[in-house]
Simulated assay, not measured.
Amino acid sequence: MSNPAVLSTESLSYRVGGESGKSGKTLVDDVTLHAAQGETIGLVGPNGSGKTTLLRCVYGTLTPTGGRVLLDGDDLAARSAKDRARRIATVPQDGHTGFELTVRQIVAMGRSPHKRFWEADTAEDERLVLAALERVGADGLAHRVFAGLSGGERQRALVARALVQQPGVLVLDEPTNHLDIRYQLEILALVRDLGTTNLLALHDLNLAAYYCDRLYVLDAGRLVASGPPKEVLTSELLAEVYGVTAEVSVHPATGAPTVTYLPPST
């Protein structure tokens, strides 16, 4: 269902303000990252570090004020919004909708980049919608009202909507937000197994360590560390970036680094 792409940013920056004598503020500052075909890349960092802003620059709701976003080596700024949407799909942090639409209708919206305005769904569109729902284990939800779903069910439907775009890159902003631990594990396992190139922002460092191939750590908009989780997640980095005391060990069952936070000394 997907053809994974290579995603890169080159010296990506995003700045607000600065007009009429104002100093402005840099939210993302000279960030270069690379995601190979089929990789799952995690963006981590404290609140306000620039993760969501960087993601919005990647999927096109914000225009970088410096640097470039590249897809398979091509500058995304040269592509139309519809063309970008054919190759990059997003699962937003807030999946709520005020419309009383069914899950099937919500998922079918993902076909919009491949259709003309008001063009009716075809038999192929319907096939792709049903295949995506089955892929994410939500085929039994097709006729349910989206607004009535649980958080985990809603996230599955939104991933299905992204899949019917047939993207090469899937961008997810805090996909485990407000989910209980079972759904957190299920959603991240699902995303990792899709075959797309994935870029996701996560707060939970232990989930990031287990499900991501590589991590990029942001602090105040700047990239401060990158690499495999075993190399990136250290007690020293957590103290520097998050201001916490923590022990990092290798879990004997998973082989992934595990972060144990320690209370402040009194």
Rank of each mutant, 00 (worst) to 15 (best):
N47V: 15
N47W: 10
G48M: 05
G48C: 10
G48Y: 06
G48L: 08
S49Q: 13
S49E: 12
S49G: 13
G50L: 11
G50Q: 07
T52S: 15
T52R: 03
T52I: 07
T53P: 00
L54D: 00
L55Y: 00
R56W: 00
R56S: 02
C57S: 10
C57F: 01
V58D: 03
T61H: 06
T61M: 01
T61D: 03
T61K: 01
L62G: 00
T63G: 01
T65V: 09
T65W: 02
T65F: 00
G66C: 11
G66V: 09
G66A: 12
G67V: 10
R68V: 12
R68W: 00
R68A: 15
V69C: 03
L70T: 08
L71R: 02
D72E: 08
G73T: 13
G73V: 13
G73Q: 10
D75T: 12
D75Y: 09
L76D: 02
L76M: 14
L76S: 09
L76C: 13
A77D: 13
A77H: 04
A78I: 05
R79I: 10
R79L: 14
S80F: 05
S80R: 04
K82I: 14
K82T: 15
D83S: 11
D83K: 04
D83Y: 03
R84M: 15
R86M: 13
R86Y: 12
R86C: 11
I88A: 00
A89G: 15
A89Q: 08
A89F: 08
T90D: 03
V91M: 03
V91N: 03
P92Y: 08
D94T: 07
G95Q: 08
H96C: 01
H96R: 13
T97P: 05
G98L: 10
G98Y: 07
F99K: 04
F99C: 07
E100Y: 09
E100I: 01
E100M: 11
E100P: 15
E100V: 04
L101G: 05
L101M: 14
L101F: 15
V103N: 03
R104D: 14
Q105V: 08
Q105A: 15
I106T: 14
I106L: 14
V107T: 13
